[in-house]
Design a protein around this nucleic acid. Structure first.
Length: 445
RNA sequence: GCGGGAGUAGCUCAACUGGUUAGAGCGCGUCCCUGUCACGGACGAGGUUGCGGGUUCAAGUCCCGUCUCUCGCGCCA
């Protein structure tokens, strides 16, 4: 007999079918046993009657046992229907029950858990409905991201994760012992490679893991995260990039509205609405605004603190009904060497951050595309251009005005779904003390 | 790295100012139950109170050290 998905059982009323899946819960009535079985498509109740021949096995099964069952799809009697659950109007009258695998679980699935208990048991806890919803949404974000950029003529490429010298300068870098006692590094960003690829394909994007060796313990940092990058040529300035990112977010949210409604309902979260134009404000203007409204004077700072980012998001929501806000024109001193200095606003760059529901989810901007200008930028940061001559070949060979963005996928997912810690939106988060399991103490510095 | 909070059963938590044998719910085990759907009922097992030291007649509770978690900050996506 061929396996039928539980989600298709409504069409099989009266028929005897083969269903395979996991036991969610067993309800033993003594002479008869009920259980809920789930597969990737849904859940249905099975009922094992005393004379079915399966009753002995039915008493043996426990939560998370993997089973193969044969049974007749029956409509339930009127008084035994349950409108609150999927397939509450039908049930499987079990005629055959085989245990494919036993299970021994550390605790019940779906209950409230402390974050570290959840993380210590990920192979099990990821099976919970909430977690499946989170990572289904995440998968759909990536799918929509690919579809949108593909439609805009972008070509996807795979960026290397093992790199030589770290010329990029965003964040602390993990060292890797390479062959013949050489030292390599884990990429903190695909930045330099995506710029090189603009010289090849003009419009490119990549989604992949990047690594930051910073010892912070916050709700928005992990050592390994997924960066959704894009970079494209022949732009007027950074506003072209912001406009395209706005369109991309609109496409992603539209996709989620179409495909992930149940997941958002389960998480009690709202899919953000993207305004026609996401508000954009210069960093200095934001600082003036904060000073005027809250008397907090950060006008000499080169960046916003988390508290200020939250305030700006509330302001954007209040004044512009937007969950998003662009902050532009960060000082040259604050940005990497390749950031493009605004010729009409010297000392400041044509760069931006995108804040979403209180947190920074994107950094982007126009880049220096002129070889001499780029080398000058590097020297201005005290960097030796010889150390990244490989990258500079792209510019020597002719590069168009270009720019792009990097989006933190897990941060975006977390804020979309109202998760308070980015680790909940990271499948297998790496942090200071944990890579799946706790790192042993004598391994640490 | 710094600052706040925390660490008690497999899980989630309780235990007033130090005071008898550290409790509950869920889970787990045995038994009862033919319409349950978080099934219900009876009984039971399960603890070095993170670890090490100290104060005290007496420590889960107070002190010191240490490890870990968590929240905030620096930094960043």
């Amino acid at each position: 007999m061929e396996r039928i998905l539980i989600g298709n059982l409504q069409e099989k009323k009266g028929e005897t079918v083969l269903v395979q899946g996991w036991i969610s819960v067993r309800r033993d009535q003594g002479k008869m046993v009920f259980f809920d079985i789930r597969d990737r498509s849904g859940t249905v109740q099975g009922v094992v009657l005393p004379n079915s021949g399966a009753i002995e096995t039915a008493k043996e099964i426990r939560s998370e046992y993997v089973v193969s069952v044969e049974g007749k799809v029956n409509e339930r009697p009127e008084k035994n229907r349950n409108a609150k659950v999927q397939n509450g109007d039908i049930e499987l009258e079990i005629t055959g029950l085989t245990i494919l695998a036993k299970a021994e679980i550390p605790f019940e699935l779906g209950g409230e858990l402390n974050l570290d208990t959840y993380l210590d048991h990920l192979p099990f806890t990821l099976r919970a409905e909430k977690q499946k919803a989170i990572f289904k949404v995440q998968a759909e974000i990536i799918k929509a991201y690919r579809a949108f950029l593909g439609g805009q003529g972008f070509i996807e490429f795979q960026s290397p994760k093992l790199i030589g010298d770290d010329a990029e300068g965003s964040g602390e870098v993990f060292e890797v012992k390479y062959l013949y006692d050489k030292i390599a590094h884990l990429a903190t960003s695909p930045q330099l490679y995506k710029q090189i690829m603009v010289g090849v394909f003009e419009r490119v994007f990549t989604t992949g893991n990047v690594y930051r060796a910073e010892k912070h313990s916050t709700t928005r940092h992990v050592s390994e995260y997924t960066s959704m990058d894009a970079e494209f040529g022949f732009i007027k300035d950074h506003t072209d990039i912001m406009a395209l990112e706005t369109e991309m977010l609109r496409a992603v949210c539209g996709h989620l509205t179409a495909l992930c409604k149940t997941e958002f309902e389960l998480m009690r979260a709202d899919i953000p609405t993207i305004p026609e134009r996401i508000p954009a404000i210069k960093l200095r203007e934001a600082q003036e605004l904060i000073f005027k409204e809250t008397k907090k004077d950060i006008r000499k700072e080169p960046d916003l603190e988390p508290e200020d980012e939250r305030w700006m998001c509330e302001w954007s929501k209040r004044e512009h009904n937007s969950d998003f806000i662009f902050i532009t024109h960060y000082p040259v001193s604050k940005r990497p060497f390749y950031a493009y200095e605004d010729e009409n606003d010297l000392g400041y760059t044509k760069s931006f951050d995108l804040l979403f529901r209180g947190i920074e989810i994107t950094t982007g901007g126009q880049r220096r595309h002129n070889y001499e200008n780029l080398v000058a930028g590097a020297k201005g940061k005290g960097l030796n251009p010889d150390n990244f001559s490989f990258y500079l070949q792209a510019f020597k060979s002719g590069m168009p005005p270009h720019g792009g963005w990097g989006i933190g996928l897990e941060r975006l997912t977390a804020k979309m779904l109202g998760l308070s810690n980015v680790k909940e939106a990271t499948l297998f988060p790496r942090d200071i003390n944990r890579i799946d399991t706790l790192l042993s103490t004598d391994q640490k510095e």
